[in-house]
Design a protein around this nucleic acid. Structure first.
Length: 342
DNA sequence: AACTAGAGCAACCGCCAGAGG
DNA sequence: ACCTCTGGCGGTTGCTCTAGT
């Protein structure tokens, strides 16, 4: 006999939240804090599962959330954090102020996985496809390898098979993925050019400002003592990052500020690859983000609310709600400071 | 204008860990 | 030690929107 459901699903509303429900939840949480989520729907007058309320709050209603699109800097950090710690979305989100695990997860699944595949990088291992192939030698033996390379083959099929050239060495691989030798695998420049031109994003003239390093390394998360593979042909993620031609000056400044704060935190990232959960937590907690409004693991910063409300692309309803929230915070700072801890 | 496919995203599901009795 | 409950997490689903035909 399994665990009983947290609520009677036949009697609770499901699906998209209405503006009225949002308002009720926001008003309740602003006044009382979160506390026991199972009691929240009842006290707030909502016919919802407590779990659903918590999710709605954490993923949408929190005033410290960004509702605009991901910046190239954020994208870069997601990629590197995923490389370091895998699909630990909540941890990754904690290192990206204003983003939720759901945001990051969705963005990864819809955008970044495809982008990495286009670049010839397996999004699971962050290794070049060619490296994976060379690791396992004869391609004809690969079907027996099993699930480990499920994503690899899927991505390989989706991305490269239509472009494969029969004359290139390994059957089914494009020229750009020719193995140079057994010890070092090069991603050839012409291939990178092809990838870059096939991507919707364009190279940013200031891309080098955001490089993680001049020679990105590929760490296999599944093996912490794995030797680092350094492609001899240098490139950086920023070459492939999204570029928003409609970025406003404000947004650019925001990105610059963000970059400045994130760079300090990213310096700690490489230690995560081979580190323990303890190290990760320590890094997370130590991460202050300087001018960022969020203090991870600390207290809510009320100053963010106004900026969020004025700069985000939220609907007028949400703007209104956030405005009310801001007023309530101003009126009852001690209440909120004591109640919020995320 | 109508239809379709794909992308994006909000929400749900089920599992797990930890706290408390 | 065991059980129950809750919060949190990652994976998945399904709805909505948009671009293409």
């Amino acid at each position: 006999m399994g665990r009983p459901p947290c609520c009677d699903k036949s009697n609770v509303k499901r699906g998209i939240w209405t503006a009225a429900e949002d308002a009720k939840l926001l008003a309740y949480v602003s006044k009382h804090g979160v506390g026991n989520w199972t009691l929240v729907p009842k006290k707030a007058g909502l016919n919802r599962c407590g779990k659903s309320c918590r999710l709605r709050w954490t993923n949408y209603l929190r005033s410290d959330l960004k509702h605009d699109s991901f910046t190239p800097q954020e994208e870069e950090h997601i990629i590197n954090l995923h490389e370091a710690i895998g699909s630990r979305w909540s941890l990754i989100a904690k290192l990206l102020p204003g983003r939720t695990d759901n945001d990051v997860k969705n963005y990864w699944n819809t955008k970044l996985k495809k982008k990495l595949s286009k670049m010839g990088i397996d999004p699971v291992t962050h290794k070049p496809f060619s490296q994976i192939l060379s690791d396992y030698g004869n391609i004809s033996s690969l079907p027996s390898i099993g699930n480990q390379f499920g994503s690899f083959f899927k991505n390989l099929n989706n991305t490269f098979v239509p472009k494969s050239e029969p004359s290139s060495g390994i059957t089914g691989l494009p020229l750009g993925f020719q193995e140079i030798n057994q010890d070092s695998v090069q991603v050839q420049p012409h291939f990178l050019n092809e990838v870059a031109s096939s991507c919707s994003s364009s190279s940013s003239p200031h891309a080098t400002d955001h490089q993680l390093s001049s020679q990105p390394t590929y760490l296999c998360q599944q093996s912490h003592h794995e030797a680092q593979i350094t492609p001899s042909s240098s490139f950086n993620w920023s070459e492939f990052l999204l570029h928003d031609p409609f970025s406003s000056a404000d947004k650019l400044k925001q990105e610059q500020d963000f970059n400045g704060t994130m760079m300090s935190s990213s310096s700690a990232i490489p230690t995560l690859a081979g580190g323990s959960e303890h190290n990760l937590n320590a890094t997370t907690q130590a991460c202050d983000f300087g001018s960022s409004a969020i203090n991870i693991g600390g207290q809510r910063n009320n100053n963010l609310v106004h900026d969020q409300a004025s700069s985000s692309s939220m609907t007028s309803f949400v703007d209104t709600i956030l405005g009310q929230d801001s007023e309530m915070q101003a009126a009852f700072p001690e209440l909120l400071d004591a109640s919020f801890d995320y």
